[in-house]
Design a protein around this nucleic acid. Structure first.
Lengths: 351, 351
DNA sequence: TAAATTTGGTGTAACGATTTACCAATGTTG
DNA sequence: CAACATTGGTAAATCGTTACACCAAATTTA
């Protein structure tokens, strides 16, 4: 057992030097005769040789690993995001380290440090708080970061690429849809509003309302209880609770915009608990357009984020940075969200 | 930039040898005076030294990394599983490599090989096919495996621990519940039935039916189209399609047992497409009890798998193996599934 | 007080790959 | 045929840690 075969064994077997084997391994096979190449190949197969990545990495200084930090893969949205990232990474020969940050900056930073120690030089960062400063030192040392759901702000000194959807527009799309259906009291259903994307969405909500000449009512904006609680692991419960509170208000809203589809599903349950129904008594629009959105009853009207495309771009950009094929200043890709109208929204049946 | 500080720098700064720093790092601080220890500690802080894990690993021969191979984190069930694993691993100082196998044995093996090359000596394997043989060589070399959803069979020569729920019982619970409500024609809604757990569930289904004196009807067992397609990434669509086909049979079933909750949700949609309703026209029981199960309309009757507990045990066992605190022969932990009755099942209203 | 043990360290050979020189033999050119 | 390139290959230093083997001084023991 535990017979570890090294490059030296291969070399011996093929009767060449370790350099030659290494050359072969690193695609420099033009540097040897066809016969030699074949002998090396045979030796590798015979001995079932697998390069020791740790040694390779120690020497080259970096690992073919990228880090993926998301709030929580327990949320299906990030689940499919993670899967997509992993799939594409694999195609490029990269492995992915999965990290659930729970949106905690200290955890994020701790992870990043640890990943750095593992030779990781590229990280994809899922939705996070407003500050990037905890990554400054790492980025200075040469870490590449691409942030999802988080265009960097002026105050950021750290250079990172970013990709995401226009969240202001996303919320506007949702609210305008509701407005066009005649709704005037529209609730904003969210957990803690302290990520860039959530703040943007709130702004979009506010803008759309303002443009329609509707006065802002703070009671209609539900932010959960504790600040810093985003409901990544219990989004449905949060949505349910929030819906309860919003709908039992003296002047209850007739429509709800949920921060994501899971919250929206929670809201469905909340509405149902109260003996009301979607969309007859209350309209709901979600965000993300996860697979389930199409399948629940009633099918959810929501704002789609092109998640696969986002994952694709994120990783290609990161790999480009790592392989030095992209060297320009930071770039921010912003994709357009799209309203998908299904059956959870209905015209307001005025009193 | 890129100032990499090594153990040597720390040693120089603290005016000791690298050995001493290494001793300190590896918890052998009793081997030095308090003064020395303090100087080392200071040096580490001053220089912001982080050990290079690759070098450490190369030397020690293993990494503090565990591999996690699941069908697909796009499925929320595995998403929360992954999150739970990662959380517990982190508490023990381990990082997790995430791998989506799509239940493909070759991918599984490829991943395992790759992970081995990275110094990974322990892997948690999510639900997989009936054979383990593709892991034989790795296990011989010293890889520790704990399998979820997959008690090893006699024919397996490979020693692996396993943990999971009694799947035969799970299906029996579901079917008996349906039987007790008066249903006699019960559909089995699944994708490819070629994992141990799915085969077990099918057996449980068959057993329960048999005990009730009901003859088996193959047309009631829906297995998707292609063999080898499990619907991990499109479970809802599979469930929807399957429900369509089953319910348009000449002698359609009056109840459905879905292989997991996502399929069940798909079935909800399928039932709805056909202008029928759950549970009045058709009863559905799912499996897993993911968070959404409670919140959909109607709330889903399902068989609960204690997923967090499973994750906990899986990782503790694996860590025990890695740290040699568990050295006995392989163990198989089988947990009891539990029927959670909600509102998607109703008494059969006979014709 | 001589011998033995403990305390508080240090020197250095690995771990397994990569890569920069360097070199011998062969082929090419004027 | 001398001078020069090219081809095919090798030796050896190196990456950052770990841990075994060793050692000098201080302390304890008989």
């Amino acid at each position: 057992m535990n017979t570890k075969v090294t490059i030296g064994d291969v070399a011996k077997f093929a009767e060449v030097s370790t350099s030659t084997v290494s050359n072969y391994l690193n695609g420099r096979s033009k540097r040897m005769s066809a016969g030699t190449e074949q002998r090396v190949l045979d030796a590798i197969e015979q001995l079932n040789y697998k390069p020791n990545q740790m040694a390779r990495q120690l020497k080259t200084g970096h690992a073919k690993i990228i880090g993926l930090i998301v709030p929580s893969v327990a949320n299906p949205f990030y689940g499919v995001f993670a899967r997509e990232i992993e799939k594409t990474a694999l195609e490029h020969g990269y492995q992915v380290f999965l990290c659930n940050s729970e949106r905690n900056p200290e955890r994020e930073h701790g992870y990043a440090e640890k990943l750095w120690g593992y030779g990781v030089r590229g990280i994809i960062l899922g939705s996070s708080l407003t500050q990037f400063s905890h990554f400054d030192d790492l980025v200075d040392r040469g870490l590449h970061l691409v942030a999802f759901d988080r265009v960097s702000q002026e105050k950021d000194q750290t250079v990172v690429d970013s990709i995401g959807v226009d969240n202001v527009l996303a919320a506007r799309l949702a609210i305008k849809h509701l407005l066009s259906l005649g709704h005037r009291r529209i609730g904003f259903l969210s957990g803690s509003i302290s990520t860039v994307s959530r703040i943007d969405r709130l702004n979009g909500y506010l803008q759309a309302l303002d443009e329609a000449g509707i006065e802002k009512d703070d009671r209609l904006i539900w932010r959960g209880y504790e600040s810093g609680h985003f409901g990544d692991n219990n989004a449905v419960e949060m949505g349910r609770q929030g819906a309860h509170e919003l709908l039992t208000l003296a002047q209850a809203p007739t429509a709800l915009f949920a921060i994501n589809d899971m919250y929206a599903f929670g809201a469905y349950a909340g509405v149902h608990d109260l003996g009301m129904s979607v969309p007859n008594d209350i309209s709901i629009v979600g965000m993300d357009d996860i697979m389930l959105a199409e399948v629940v009853q009633p099918p959810l009207t929501t704002i789609r984020q092109p998640i696969k495309q986002i994952a694709q771009i994120a990783i290609e950009r990161l790999l480009g940075r790592l392989q030095q094929t992209i060297t320009n200043k930071q770039e921010h890709v912003v994709l357009a969200p799209r309203l998908v109208v299904r059956s959870s929204t209905n015209a307001f049946r005025g009193e």
